[in-house]
């Protein structure tokens, strides 16, 4: 099997956002992973971006005000069966 085409840091950074969002596939993803195995700088950058993205995802959880839960339960009670 042929060695995949090697990409440089400039190309890796161009693909960074799509790699981070799991939007790279096939050969393009393999090239990226191979680069990250060899390049400490890009690996550090990706790890940083992954952690920041994971922290942003945590913003989805928000304590629910009790009055909102009561309001939603009351609303559902109005849904006739």
């Amino acid at each position: 099997m042929n060695e995949p085409h090697v990409i440089d840091c400039e190309e890796a950074l161009r693909r960074l956002v799509e790699y981070l969002d799991a939007e790279l596939h096939g050969e393009s993803q393999r090239q990226m992973e191979q680069h990250l195995e060899r390049c400490r700088s890009c690996f550090s950058r990706i790890e940083f971006e992954k952690r920041l993205k994971a922290s942003t995802a945590e913003l989805r959880h928000e304590p629910v005000p009790p009055e909102l839960e009561r309001r939603i339960r009351s609303l559902v009670d109005t849904f006739k069966c």
Binding site: L59, H61, E62, V64, L68, E69, I72
Partner: peptide, 13 residues
């Protein structure tokens, strides 16, 4: 109702 209440924190966030 069960699903909505389970998801309420994420929906509200």
């Amino acid at each position: 109702e069960r699903i909505v209440v389970e998801l309420l924190s994420d929906l509200y966030g």
